[in-house]
Write a protein that binds this DNA or RNA. Structure first.
Lengths: 148, 148
DNA sequence: TCAAGATTTAGAATTATTCTAAATTGAGCC
DNA sequence: GGCTCAATTTAGAATAATTCTAAATCTTGA
């Protein structure tokens, strides 16, 4: 045993985070969170539903939306909207941005962001800035190779 | 008369831009573009439809989507997706970002962006970056005042 | 144990977007 | 000008995404 602080197991933080927003930890919310962490490919609500259903056959679509909303509310999941299609969900809460391939629609995490400070964005009086979302658009390696 | 270069009338550039992408200038596309420029409040396709319809009663929803797509394709309009709701459209092609009020959903143009250079984003090999989209989230002056 | 409130569920309802097939339009050519 | 071809528009149906509803279930705290 050493003195280094260890992270609490994810279930704990999950519970704490939910509780902090006045929400309960339920098996469904746990399952949805697990599904997201298992394969961080930015699935849509529908994909989350199908994956969760395979482990928990009784879960319903409405619950998936409810769980996703709960997880977003308490800051454990990010919503990612990049085009006209369905919203995607991302359980990576590290500061990062998303690269969206305009050709094939795939999404990649890019472990860099622009902080409000370095962006030195000056907003008109009265605005309260909470978060800067950076979306990178272009071609993923596969599509870039094909286009060449 | 003086020697200062004058901008070509918007219809011209509209036509040129469309032609450049192999698209035609039609009354409907012109109308949709006009609607967007008239009130730059980031309307949804549905709002554009209603506004266009008041001037051109025979226009259909499918045409509005077609026109919006055409204008986006030829670089005259930007698509703005900020949340789970309907996509919005922005005819301001100046470099700028969008401020989204998480409370009331209103959208403001912010005339600052982060260039790929100053962002010094380093992408993994193979990615081809075309555009950085910056979305600011927080509270608009009205909502900020209420929350206080 | 009970009551109150939160959560889940199925399915209906709504909203957003795309598709389809027929009609219309416009550009280039004779 | 009339003809042909392809692009565009149209109404409406179809699909996809999300939200709503009301009843059932679960959890928590008195």
């Amino acid at each position: 045993m050493n003195a280094v602080a260890t992270k609490p197991p994810p279930e704990n933080s999950l519970n704490e985070r939910l509780a902090h927003s006045g929400l309960r930890l339920t098996p469904q919310r746990q399952q949805v969170h697990e599904v997201l962490r298992e394969k961080m490919d930015h699935p849509t609500a529908d994909q989350v539903f199908m994956r969760a259903k395979s482990k928990m056959p009784e879960i319903s679509m409405a619950t998936v939306y409810n769980c996703l909303d709960a997880l977003v509310t308490c800051g454990l999941v990010r919503q990612v909207t990049l085009d006209r299609g369905a919203t995607r969900y991302c359980p990576n809460m590290q500061d990062h941005s998303h690269f969206y391939c305009d050709e094939c629609g795939s999404v990649y995490d890019i472990l860099q962001t622009i902080s409000p400070e370095e962006a030195h964005i000056k907003l008109p009086r009265g605005f309260r800035l909470k978060l800067i979302e950076t979306n990178l658009h272009g071609l993923c390696p596969d599509c870039a190779a094909k286009t060449k």
